[in-house]
Design a protein around this nucleic acid. Sequence first.
DNA 1: ATAGCTGCAAACTATTTGCAATCCC
DNA 2: GGGATTGCAAATAGTTTGCAGCTAT
Lengths: 144, 144
Amino acid sequence: MVKDVRRELERFVDKCKSMGLKITPQRVAVYEVLLNREDHPTVEEVYNEIKKRYPFVSLATVYRTVETLEDLGFVKRVAYWGGSVRYDANVEDHHHLICTKCGAIKDIQLDINWQAPEHLEGYKVEKYSLHIYGVCPACQKKEN
Amino acid sequence: MVKDVRRELERFVDKCKSMGLKITPQRVAVYEVLLNREDHPTVEEVYNEIKKRYPFVSLATVYRTVETLEDLGFVKRVAYWGGSVRYDANVEDHHHLICTKCGAIKDIQLDINWQAPEHLEGYKVEKYSLHIYGVCPACQKKEN
DNA sequence: ATAGCTGCAAACTATTTGCAATCCC
DNA sequence: GGGATTGCAAATAGTTTGCAGCTAT
């Protein structure tokens, strides 16, 4: 699955317009960074990347923007292992490989042959994902 | 699966002794609270429950104790949706039902017919769990 | 007796918020 | 022009840490 960043950004701009939200450089920059990353950066990481190109953004704006993006359905907040919240511009269903040492999260495609029921123990089910915990290659090296 | 709290506490006391750790009332109280709860309380929640019975404990001690318990393998830190870290004294493999509104986490037993490989994309796999996201009964009521 | 624990308070990290200035439509 | 958005700094929430005194072994 190759992401068409340009097309996604257009879709985002359209959605903002239709919602009466302004298209600000900050907003576009945040979404662009998230679209271009394969991992699931923290807000701080997004901020650091944006600062290189647009030194004017503030961390508070990045926090506000990821929340807006989440409300609009363009990114999702991924359940996290520790530390800070992480965001993901891949909104399709997929599974996660999570490092128990550093918290890094990687998307993976897997067929688990399981379908979520609409309701479970009184919960209204929205989505699900398999979380696989382990030690990532980088942290395995550090262990020696 | 009915938990034998008394037996678990004994096992805990033995393990502490064998590790040269002291059996303090604070330690026992924290583990006892976690053993007796079906949900996955935050550190603050554990602290509040303990305070009722043992008003002398401090929040910092509860933080330190859950970490010790985790190191010993008596509880685990569960991946969380937002806010604070949550702990679980159920160390057997099981799945999670997570409320996207309030972050509450409930254990569930499910057969997903899937076995984790030992290695996946370079990660050394330790365990896995299915995370099912939805809105819990309490939050569904609040929505009206 | 003494190493390990604890309580307290202060430090730190992550996130949110109030408000005046600024920017898109 | 005018409301939405931003930057800044201050506030808040969650967690960790230093240290002096206490306690289980």
